[in-house]
Nucleic acid binder design. Structure first.
Lengths: 104, 104
DNA sequence: ACAATAGGTAGGAGATTTCCTACGGGTCAA
DNA sequence: TTGACCCGTAGGAAATCTCCTACCTATTGT
């Protein structure tokens, strides 16, 4: 869980996930085109994502295709569950307060 | 967003959030009782959570009560939205495969 | 006023992150 | 086979993280 959150804490890595979500699996070079960064650094980001289980890697010829693997994100959503009840209650409370206000 | 994920990437900080969720707002000492860690380190974790907007701080006398502030978590849930569709599709695909299998 | 309590700040050690350049290993095309 | 290409590893620099000890401020009770 910690490694998943740590992986998501970097904007480059979140952008990589977004690209993989919107455009499907891609080789490294194609992903690298979107970033102002050397490829070895991108490789390192991809390794962090892979270690967190957020992407899978499939070598085809001399390319490596990376694909989104959303299971860890589902676990994040599960982790959020108990807190969701809390913020819903807060929103409900806020609504009550707003309903109680005059001049509306 | 990055600072929220970075805050969540530490198990001590996630445990702090869990304590605040389950037991409501508490002063630092009461929180510290649950950890094998010196108080200055706890203070630093609380500061990280506060900077990420995940907790609020209210001084009462010589104590400071910390309370959960779930808005950033709601934003995380919103961020997860597009990926949720993806993993649901995956689960649906998996179900299809399972349904197609013999010997069930 | 004085001692005790709550909790923060200062600063340092060691590990980790995030970028880089240089290079190596495998694959394809001529 | 040779050169071009895809992409990773090695290793280093600067910044940041996470813990610590020592110390400081503010509040409370006597």
């Amino acid at each position: 869980m910690s490694d998943v959150f740590a992986a998501l804490a970097n904007p480059t890595r979140r952008e990589l996930l977004r690209l993989l979500l919107e455009r499907g699996e891609q080789p490294v070079q194609q992903l690298a085109d979107h970033f102002d960064m050397r490829r070895p650094s991108l490789s390192e980001h991809l390794r962090v994502l892979k270690d967190a289980g957020l992407v899978t890697e499939q070598p085809i010829g001399r390319q490596r295709f990376y694909a989104l693997c959303p299971e860890p994100l589902r676990e994040v959503a599960d982790w959020l569950g108990p807190y969701e009840r809390f913020w819903r209650a807060r929103l409900a409370g806020l609504r009550e307060v707003l309903d109680g206000l005059p001049d509306e």
